[in-house]
Write a protein that binds this DNA or RNA. Structure first.
Length: 385
DNA sequence: TTTGAGCGG
């Protein structure tokens, strides 16, 4: 397909992936050798005038535009390879993703041009790119063909082939959403089961005995520490999902070695990491909101002051949710925390001696000699670690 | 390990 194809403006090129500082003048300099140019426009944000990273080059002759596309694609301006396509105002093909191919495990030596040349054997390419960062190729890229047929040919021929000694994956492009859906469907069909809390007295053979009751176990693994002792958890992979599900349904919460065990779908490492992270964030958030503006830091405490005494001294000011004198080796470290319930916050502030009110604005320490044997200083903490 | 962005006057 070329500029004479249906729907293409005759001699207009779309140039994308432009550095924001690229100007019409720079583009003119780059493209004018290909032939007489009618107009060039870098598209800009209407209010800020900042470049949107793409431009149009309108040639007088379609043949010149075609030559520019063939010879100048991926040329570098301001350190960035430009990506040239025919101007195609109908977004249908771009949006549908038909003919879009994803390639991974690319050798770092394969750049945009090499990818383009390799895949153009299968049909007309609308757009092509190797994804890069500051260190060069990230080893994957995209080739968007004009037709599904060309994409199919490319996948059929190239998937699993060696490209500069690396076996590349070539498949239809899938959006993040599609991939998540696929993964979700796979998760629902899990066969691998995770068991924890069965203690040290366990090995593969025994675990297999227990879980064989639910079906055919393809693999059984009790995780061990360096000295060969059970770490209290392991995995059983079943021949099919129904067996795995049955094992979970019947064994979760049951007793093994006198302990209540957890039995559930085994997660991938990535999945588990993200769940742990999420849970940690949630706990942190709860803690912040629980203590926000209500926790008092008390320092300069006499050695004899314990939790009990601290609570007694502060209880006239409101409902205390927790009191803690920090200790080390059984000895007071001379400071601690008193936490009031949120509803008590204002009342607490009003009840505290006048000069102290100022301390709520800034993390300043105040010395309060009026209370016998106990010296207080206050500052409000936003968070409590 | 890695599954995008993108169409004016």
């Amino acid at each position: 397909m070329n500029a004479t194809g249906a729907g293409y403006p005759l001699a207009s090129l779309y140039v994308g992936d432009l550095h924001v500082d690229v100007t019409e003048a720079m583009l003119y300099e780059k493209f004018s050798p290909a032939g007489p140019i009618m107009s060039i426009r870098v598209c800009r944000d209407i209010s800020t005038r900042r470049s949107l990273g793409y431009a149009y080059i309108n040639f007088q002759q379609p043949a010149d535009a075609e030559r520019a596309l063939d010879t100048m694609n991926f040329e570098v301006i301001k350190g960035r390879p430009i990506r040239i396509m025919w101007s195609q105002r109908d977004p249908g093909l771009r949006k549908s993703g038909v003919g879009n191919v994803f390639i991974k495990n690319l050798d770092e030596s394969i750049d945009n041009k090499a990818l383009y040349d390799t895949f153009s054997a299968f049909g007309n390419i609308l757009s092509c790119k190797v994804v890069c960062d500051e260190n060069g190729s990230r080893g994957y890229g995209f080739v968007h063909f004009e037709t599904q047929e060309a994409a199919n040919r490319a996948i059929q021929t190239m998937n699993g082939m060696l490209l500069n000694d690396r076996k590349v994956f070539v498949g239809h492009f899938k959006s993040r959403r599609e991939r998540e859906m696929e993964y979700g469907a796979k998760v629902l069909e899990f066969t691998n089961v995770y068991i924890k809390n069965f203690g040290e007295d366990m090995d593969d053979v025994r675990l297999k005995q227990i879980f064989s009751a639910f079906g055919n176990t393809l693999s059984v693994k009790v995780m061990m520490d360096g000295s060969g002792r059970s770490r209290g958890f392991g995995f059983v992979n079943f021949g099919n999902h129904e067996e795995a599900q049955k094992a979970v349904a019947e064994m979760n919460g049951k007793e093994i070695n006198g302990r209540l065990v957890y039995v559930g779908r085994a997660q991938k490492r990535i999945e588990r990491q993200s769940e742990l992270k999420r849970r940690f964030e949630q706990i942190k958030q709860e803690r912040i909101s629980r203590y926000q503006g209500v926790n008092l830091y008390v320092k300069n405490l006499d050695d004899g002051i314990d939790d009990e005494r601290l609570r007694k001294e502060f209880s006239p000011y409101g409902t205390i949710t927790s009191v803690k004198v920090m200790t080390e080796g059984g000895h007071s470290k001379g400071f601690g925390f008193v936490c009031f319930s949120y509803m008590q916050r204002l009342a607490t502030m009003r009840a505290l001696p006048g000069p102290l009110l100022g301390s709520f604005q800034q993390p300043t320490s105040y010395f309060l000699p009026a209370v016998p044997q106990v010296c207080f200083s206050f500052l409000f903490l936003l968070t409590y670690r």
